[in-house]
Design a protein around this nucleic acid. Structure first.
Length: 873
RNA sequence: GCGGCUGUAGCUCAGAGGGAGAGCACCACCUUGACACGGUGGGGGCCACAGGUUCGAUUCCUGUCAGCCGCACCA
């Protein structure tokens, strides 16, 4: 039994020390590069990473073998919010302190300590998967070089006017206490109430009714808006209304933003707490007071409600409105509410001073490049999703109120108030020369730095050798969930700063789910740890499982049974290799191939191997990983193990020494080629076996990728072997149906109908003898069935197994009648098709011809069965 | 609302314009000299539904239904 644990760690070390993962920028070979989507430094590997890494590693190993200077560049991401939250949690648990207790400097030091302590964990896990990354080029988003790139990009964008600071409504997570970008907000449909609230006119003449889902924001209301063309409200525009629960009055204004059909046609305007209201506020030059603070609690503006949470405030406000007669009613309403994608807290739209990237000028060139076909998505449908997003992007809020990350390179002057934006830390204000400057407290969105990953990792902005050789990269492999977060950002920063698409192709895969199709998550506790899978079944089994389960762009579910199946396949391969090795004897030398002397089986398997080489290569080239795996699985198991190894025993256990040598040579050749083809998917076992086989070269990982050989094609051998196998199956079937033990030798009479079949079976008679356990085989071109026998038809004739005393005539008749029935329906189907005038005239000639041949064959088989039935007594 | 994905054997899923496939599960048999994580044989499906294109559709097109996912949202 194959034991992955005994192999994998040792093998990885062997490759690494042999320098197999290192890419040489000075190489004359064509470059092929991939940058790894950087996992969170302090995170741990999940199955999604394992999947993502496996696919990339397959591509890289394939390309490396195919003669490219292959670079798989690894690294990690500082993951601002996530990492900071983890360290804060640890701090709280250990000492009960908050980050404010430590202060910024000591806290950041603490995070670095954490990073040093746990940062290797994830990269060790990447190694455990078997990823053949160039660790000498490992990068971290907060490395000095990469931080320099971040500053450079910030400063350049600022100078181009593409970064600005502004007071805008942003998404604020009260729990994380930071601003978020639009895509970090998840809209979740939740049941709510639409409250109708009466706002009395200040003059006491009646009231109007507004509809709102957020009554707790009313303390920041500055107006009530109606549609300018709404006849119902035309007379009241400009009139002041009283804001209930307060002593304030606010005006009624007219704005076309209001939908007359919705609710009452009156909207309360709260510019500091709603993006639409904010726009209205700007148009009407309204005040923008805030009644909810960054902590998610009501501010002093809310008077007696100050200090309450948003939820408490809502309940109290509604109760008080009702008690005081302002609540007209409430209707249930389902609407989408933004939640923090990290912590699921309800996001507060908050008016806040933040830094933004102006997206229009960056998205435009990206869209044009996409239209010019400079970036290909696999599968293609993701291109539309991608460009739709780019077409609709809004400005990107990049400042985060965190301490862990790239600090914004902007210094404000205490004297003149101006900002200095600088690549290097300035000593004084650029504008007035004052030294009384202090740096912006905020850090940049993590994606701002990962958006530079394909070139910042290669040394940009320096013109490095790596940039020259390996940039742009060739393929990016990613799950679809970070297309906007990450891929889009790399695309536009790449175009803006390097003038190139950072990659030619994006291979998109899906998400891994649990057995019920649910996303794996900590809260559900349904996650599967890839290390546990590796521990139990080995990294190869995990890789094989994930790869076979890959269908372009689609999700897959995880089942332990699948891993078990993969483990079984790997074990099968291992045992096949043991068989080959066992039969090589002491001969360590690689026997020379002499195709001229090959047996039928040799010629058959070698020809099939050529098919598999070209099919697999094509499938890998088009990133059809699941299909490539299936091609190899089927060939290895069904053809090589089940048939060829069985065929080979004839020669190996025979007396013809020359044939034996060639069979060994073919076994080694086929296995060697198969190992090469399988190596990208299951690198560990294949290398382990390859090292044991006679081989040239240092390691399989560095061996060359096979190419199909046209001089190794023997088409007639394939046809002949097919006939032999068909007869073997027919006899096995007879034995099984007739309950004749496989161990009991039988006599076999074969009545070939054609010369082709006769020749094939005569050539393969020794295989038939062995695989059918036939005591003797006779061929008869004509003549009657032997007495007391059971029969079967095959496409080239009829066969008989005399079973004196065993034949149950009734059972045999049943069996033959079932067979006749099957053949009749085939004949019916084929003749109906051929009777169709338009089929014969319009279908391709080859298709029609094939149909005719099939019909003839079935008719003959049917005739044979019918005769046989008639002869049964 | 706009866009997308999925619907095929009991389960998980491939597939492709010309006779329905795999793995697992199931049934029967087999300690055959690589492998019981194995071998041999077998059962099991109106390929969601309705139209259309085609000589021919499970495959392409259009709808319907069901499940899922993005994006955008009017309080």
């Amino acid at each position: 039994m194959y034991d992955p644990k005994a192999v994998e760690a040792r093998m990885y070390r062997f490759w690494e020390t042999a320098g197999a993962f290192r890419a040489d920028a000075a190489s004359s070979k064509p470059a092929f590069s991939i940058v790894m989507p950087p996992p969170n430094v302090t995170g741990s590997l999940h199955l999604g990473h394992a999947w993502n890494n496996t696919l990339q590693d397959i591509i890289i190993r394939h390309r490396r073998m195919a003669g490219y200077e292959a670079l798989f560049l690894p690294g990690t991401d500082h993951a601002g919010i996530a990492t900071q939250a983890r360290v804060e949690k640890a701090l709280r648990e250990e000492t009960g302190q908050t980050r404010y207790d430590l202060g910024r400097e000591r806290f950041v030091e603490r995070v670095w300590e954490w990073k040093h302590a746990y940062g290797n964990q994830i990269t060790d896990q990447v190694r455990a998967i078997g990823s053949s990354c160039d660790w000498s080029r490992e990068r971290f988003t907060m490395d000095e070089g990469l931080s320099r790139a971040v500053r450079k990009v910030f400063v350049d964008l600022y100078e181009k006017g593409l970064i600005y600071r502004g007071n805008r409504i942003i998404n604020w997570c009260p729990r994380c206490a930071t601003a978020l970008s639009d895509i970090e907000v998840e809209h979740v449909e939740v049941p709510a109430q639409l409250y109708h609230v009466r706002y009395p006119f200040a003059d006491g003449e009646g009231s109007l009714t507004v509809a709102t889902t957020r009554p707790e924001t009313m303390f920041a209301d500055v107006a009530v808006a109606v549609h300018p063309d709404d006849p119902r409200y035309a007379p009241i525009v400009g009139k002041p209304v009283c804001l209930p629960l307060t002593d304030r009055t606010i005006p009624v204004i007219a704005d076309a933003y209001v939908d007359r059909e919705y609710g009452t046609g009156c909207v309360k305007i709260t510019p500091a707490h709603d993006p639409n209201d904010f726009e209205v506020g700007l148009r009407h030059d309204l005040d923008m007071p805030q009644c909810i603070g960054p902590d998610g609690r009501l501010t002093e503006l809310a008077g007696p409600y100050a200090g309450l949470s948003r939820e408490e405030a809502r309940a109290r406000v509604v109760a008080d409105l009702e008690a005081q007669g302002f609540l007209v009613g409430a209707e249930p309403l389902d609407h989408a509410v933004g939640h923090c994608s990290r912590c699921e807290t309800v996001v507060e739209p908050l008016l806040s001073l933040q830094w933004f990237v102006r997206m229009q000028p960056l998205a435009q060139p990206a869209l044009e490049a996409l239209r010019r076909g400079e970036l290909r998505f696999v599968p293609a449908r993701f291109e539309r999703i991608f460009s739709q997003w780019l077409e609709n992007v809004r400005d990107w809020c990049i400042s985060r109120q965190l301490w862990w990350g790239h600090r914004i390179p902007v210094w404000y002057c205490g004297q003149c108030g101006d900002a200095t934006v600088s690549l290097d830390d300035p000593a004084a204000c650029q504008h007035c020369g004052s030294t009384e400057i202090h740096q912006d407290e905020d850090v940049l969105d993590t994606w701002f730095s990962s958006g530079l990953w394909p070139f910042s990792t290669m040394g940009w902005p320096e013109a490095t050798e790596d940039m020259a050789k390996f940039y742009p990269t060739d393929v990016l492999v990613t799950a679809y969930d970070i297309l906007f977060f990450w891929v889009a950002r790399m695309v536009f920063t790449g175009l803006e700063f390097t003038g190139r698409m950072p990659f030619r192709e994006v291979v998109v895969h899906g998400l891994i789910r649990d057995g019920q199709g649910r996303k794996m998550s900590k809260s559900l506790g349904n996650g599967v740890d890839p290390l546990e899978v590796i521990e139990r079944y080995g990294a190869d089994a995990l890789r094989f499982t994930l790869t076979t389960g890959t269908s372009p762009g689609n999700d897959q579910r995880f089942f332990w049974e699948k891993v078990e199946g993969s483990r079984n396949f790997i074990n099968k391969l291992w045992n096949a290799a043991r068989f080959v090795l066992m039969n090589l004897g002491s001969d360590a030398a690689l026997p020379e191939l002499q195709p001229g002397t090959w047996s039928l089986a040799d010629r058959w398997i070698v020809t099939r191997l050529q098919d598999v080489v070209s099919t697999t290569t094509e499938q890998l080239n088009r990133y059809d990983f699941g299909e490539a795996c299936r091609t190899l699985y089927d060939f290895a198991w069904d053809e090589f193990c089940d048939w060829y190894i069985e065929f080979s025993k004839l020669s190996l256990y025979g007396t013809d020494e020359d044939a034996k040598v060639q069979t060994r040579a073919v076994l080694v050749y086929v296995l060697d080629t198969l190992l090469r083809l399988l190596h990208p998917v299951i690198p560990f076992v294949t290398e382990e076996i390859w090292q044991a086989l006679p081989h040239e070269g240092e390691a399989l990982i560095l061996a060359h990728w096979p190419e199909p050989r046209s001089d190794y094609r023997f088409e007639s051998a394939v046809a002949e072997a097919d006939t032999v196998m068909e007869v073997v199956r027919a006899v096995r079937n007879l034995r099984s149906e007739m309950n004749v033990a496989p161990s009991k030798p039988v006599r076999l009479d074969i009545h070939p109908r054609t010369d082709t079949a006769h020749t094939a079976l005569a050539a393969g008679v020794a295989y038939l003898q062995r695989l059918c356990n036939a005591a003797s085989i006779e061929f008869h071109r004509e003549g009657d069935a032997p007495a007391q026998s059971v029969s079967a038809v095959f496409s080239g004739g009829e066969l008989f197994v005399p079973l004196a005393g065993v034949v149950d005539v009734d059972a045999e008749r049943d069996r033959l009648q079932r067979e006749a029935g099957r053949l009749q329906s085939e004949v019916k189907r084929a003749s109906a098709k051929l009777a169709n005038e338009s089929f014969v005239s319009r279908a391709p000639a080859a298709v029609v011809e094939a149909e005719r041949a099939k019909l003839a064959d079935y008719q003959q088989q049917l005739e044979a069965v019918t005769q046989r039935l008639a002869g049964l007594t």
